[in-house]
Nucleic acid binder design. Structure first.
Lengths: 249, 249
DNA sequence: GCCGGCTATTTTGCATTCATTTTTTGTCCT
DNA sequence: AGGACAAAAAATGAATGCAAAATAGCCGGC
């Protein structure tokens, strides 16, 4: 796997003194960065139908910019897996097949499983307490059949675990994959089955228990299985959409 | 988290019939795709010093193209984490701190751990046999103190496990993270310590054993720990570079 | 002699323009 | 009327041009 770039004979070397360089990390500073953030949200929120062709022209006037920064943002979104770029035929919102979803869920499961493992090494008692708090809050939502609140709190719990892993790289990757799935989650709220719901609560209790004991391997297993079950519920839901549980008033 | 894109009132909908659309997945078809592949290899192979500023101008004439496709490729590489783009100050090869490396290794560990878990569900006997074959081959390299061959075969084993997981999404993510680390691996070949080497061999045997028994959780644990140990060896190596084991004749 | 401010040059960011490719539309022929 | 071909229209891909920011070079001051 050798690089095919013509060697100019001029080795590229650093400017000899860039150790304590300031970083200036503000993606929204440049226009393409701004565009990237807005477009990403726009896509993740499901404003564009799956597989819909998105003419650059139209997006340009929507955003009030020229095509150059837009195209740069599109390339990045494609790299992130949110859209796909067909040569000479424009950008489309990526169509997720059932298989894609399964794969995504499994990867998410792996990442959360990892997060749990790492969290056991670094999490503080205070953080555990905070998660317990969220857990009770979620339990309340469960009792009140408040799906929306339940999901929101559930997400915060999982995010807390990821945060406790003290790994920014993991956190970023997690956010990326979560974004890809969120598109689907927006249109279809799965896991509405009562039975699955109760099961999830029990699993969450097991998670907390393992976390308290800092049982890394065990927590890793539980988290993986928990996400695996979520996956199953999600796929089932997509296959035969309707179920019980009326929408909250 | 609401999108900030001005709503033109015109909902974007798909062209009503794009189910069996042909896909045409050839990244190298377009120029920016070609550039992307070449630049990525170029960076991964370590041809540019860490933290080196890379003027667009220079890269353009190196590649014989204009700035537009180059800039698009740079944006993607930045999204992949290989380089970073400082606003108004150009692209730099991403400087990996020790912490970054630790994080990357842990994420890799998580992904391989996941791969092992999934592989247990889907791997065929033939695939296991193939991995055993690689294992013996690697053992030969070990006995002959052939570091290069050892590493190469080692890598093939790990790739085989990932492949056996039957998850393209995972495979892609794995390749991405591997690329980020490979940069470092190119400049510094760690894990040269004899003791660590022997340990790694034992771990590999345990991996094979668990794989044969399709013991998912167990394999997951072993793989994670294996990568964790690799991480430790790598970090140690970077801290105090030299050790025993002379270069192969 | 060294540091700080000012100007000139370089470099980046974005818009615009040019060249292909694709898609659409219109026409002709069967 | 329906389909095939061809030309027009539109969209994408890449190059160029222009404004703003950053870097470097220069001069003066201390």
């Amino acid at each position: 796997m050798k690089s095919t770039i013509p060697d100019t004979g001029v080795p590229i070397t650093p400017p000899a003194g860039n150790g304590g360089d300031r970083q200036e990390n503000r993606p929204e500073a440049s226009l393409h960065g701004e565009i990237l953030l807005r477009l990403r949200d726009y896509v993740v929120e499901g404003n564009i139908a799956e597989g819909a062709r998105v003419p650059e022209r139209q997006l340009c006037e929507m955003l009030g910019i020229s095509r150059t920064p837009l195209r740069e943002a599109l390339k990045v979104l494609a790299a992130e897996g949110l859209i796909e770029l067909l040569p000479n035929r424009g950008a489309r919102v990526r169509q997720l097949s059932q298989r894609d979803l399964e794969e995504l869920f499994d990867v998410m499961a792996g990442l959360e499983s990892l997060a749990g493992r790492l969290a056991c090494e670094a999490i503080t008692d205070a953080e555990i307490t905070a998660i317990e708090q969220l857990h009770y809050e979620m339990y309340g939502h469960y009792l009140h059949r408040d799906m929306h609140g339940y999901f929101q709190t559930n997400q915060r719990i999982h995010e807390s675990i990821v945060a406790a892993a003290r790994n920014e790289t993991l956190k970023t990757a997690y956010a990326n994959f979560a974004g890809r799935i969120r598109r689907v989650r927006y249109s279809a709220n799965f896991a509405r089955k009562r039975q699955r719901w109760a099961e999830a609560m029990r699993e969450h209790e097991a998670i907390l228990d393992a976390l308290r004991r800092r049982a890394a391997s065990e927590l890793s297993d539980i988290l993986f299985q928990h996400l695996r079950n979520k996956r199953t519920a999600a796929i089932e839901h997509l296959t035969e959409p309707q179920e019980d549980a009326p929408a909250t008033p």
